[in-house]
Amino acid sequence: MNELPTPFERFVQGILPENPVYRQLLGLCPTLAVTNGLKPALTMAVAVGAVLLCANIMISLIRNLLKPHLRIVVFTLTIATFVTIVDRVLAAYMYQMSKTLGPYIPLIIVNCIIICRCEVCASRQGVVTAAADAVGQASGFALALTGIAAVRELLGTGMLAGFQVLPEAWPAWVIMVLPPGAFLTFGLLLALVNYISDHRSRKNA
């Protein structure tokens, strides 16, 4: 069996080489649904990151006790617990944001990025590696979400995180903050990332 990646490798891989959104195409539901503004996108990224970190650490701690045929149940149970805690904390301290994100917060339970990281990394490697992996993947997810959200909010409203950035004369492209805008932006950014990495690998070859 090949040697498993070190904590540092896990961390770096999550950000670009194995970016959960652009490279693995995972967790696309929140990526498309809550990126019509920078603020909800950032809140979602932080919420997913917090759940991912806690779940990875927890699973890594109990990895030697896991039974192969019951591991997915344990993953889901762990993730659901942390998601519920995040959901309640948001409802208590960021009430309006929790209403804006609505069912997308409880839906983090079925976010495949988290269950994938539990399976690939946390259930096989130590706590430090699992935590580094979670931070890396969460940063990659945050990068992808804020990237898409920034493009959509800027073109759709002329604002960034609620502040006017483009001149008032900018004809807001409403379609960008509507669902089609999510697909357009995501598709174009995905193509851009693929083009850049293609270009790079050809240069290296």
């Binding site: 109990i62 006790l65 896991l66 039974k67 019951l70 149940v73 344990v74 149970l77 762990t78 617990t81 519920t84 805690i85 309640r88 904390v89 409802a91 208590a92 301290y93 009430y95």
Partner: peptide, 26 residues
């Protein structure tokens, strides 16, 4: 399934504690 059952009990109590602490604020 002892681990699943044990975790369910631990997580359940943790969630109850969160609920007790935050329900008034919510």
């Amino acid at each position: 399934a002892w681990l699943v059952l044990l975790l369910a009990i631990i997580f359940g109590s943790a969630l109850a504690a969160v609920q007790v602490n935050l329900s008034d604020v919510i």
